[in-house]
């Protein structure tokens, strides 16, 4: 069951990811990215990470993508026109990506530890409770620092979007 769900959602995720980098219209790209993020959230659910899956849908596929669509609308972006492609850059990029994928598959094939089936959970506590306990016991200081980071980002955005930049 988990294997079937994995194949369905990972192939959907990769297909929509391909859509992001091949489609010309920016709105179609944004929609493909939303679908890719939702498939990714489904993959998180197959890994029993329910809290992260909900956060992924709410924050990444919801808030962030609405922001993207809003900016696309604001800038009135048209479909990207065909420009001259620089072949050395493209060849170098494809070679880099191929090397990365070949290296990854070699590493994954080298160790039988990567091929073990998924271990069973024996926890009785719920997922969100464990996340909260870890967050507020072991990671309290990083949590507050990240609140400060969000404040700084907000002030920075307000400053950047003033009428005149000095």
């Amino acid at each position: 069951m988990q294997l079937t769900l994995f194949w369905i959602f990972s192939s959907l995720m990769i297909l929509f990811g391909l859509g992001v980098i091949t489609l010309r219209s920016p709105v179609s790209c944004a929609m493909c990215l939303v679908s890719s993020f939702i498939s990714l959230a489904a993959l998180f659910i197959t890994l029993d990470a329910f809290f992260i899956a909900v956060i992924q849908i709410l924050v990444a596929a919801g808030a962030v993508m609405v922001l993207f669509l809003f900016i696309i609308m604001l800038l009135n972006l048209q479909a990207e026109e065909c420009r001259r492609l620089r072949f050395p850059v493209i060849l170098g990029g494809i070679a880099t990506i191929l090397c990365f994928l070949i290296l990854l598959s070699q590493v994954l094939a080298s160790n039988p530890q990567f091929l073990e089936p998924i271990p069973a959970l024996q926890s009785t506590l719920s997922d969100v409770k464990m996340i909260g306990m870890t967050l507020f016991h072991s990671f309290n200081l990083p949590f507050q620092i990240i609140g400060l980071l969000l404040l700084v980002a907000t002030v920075g955005v307000v400053l950047l979007s003033r009428r005149t930049l000095k």
Partner: peptide, 27 residues
């Protein structure tokens, strides 16, 4: 059941797609 390598390979593929997009797209 699904081994860990499947998930890591899917993650690597998505990462390479993103890298390809950064290199190829102009907008």
């Amino acid at each position: 059941m699904t081994p860990l390598s499947h998930y890591l390979m899917a993650s690597g593929l998505l990462f390479s797609l993103g890298l390809a997009g950064v290199l190829l797209r102009r907008t």
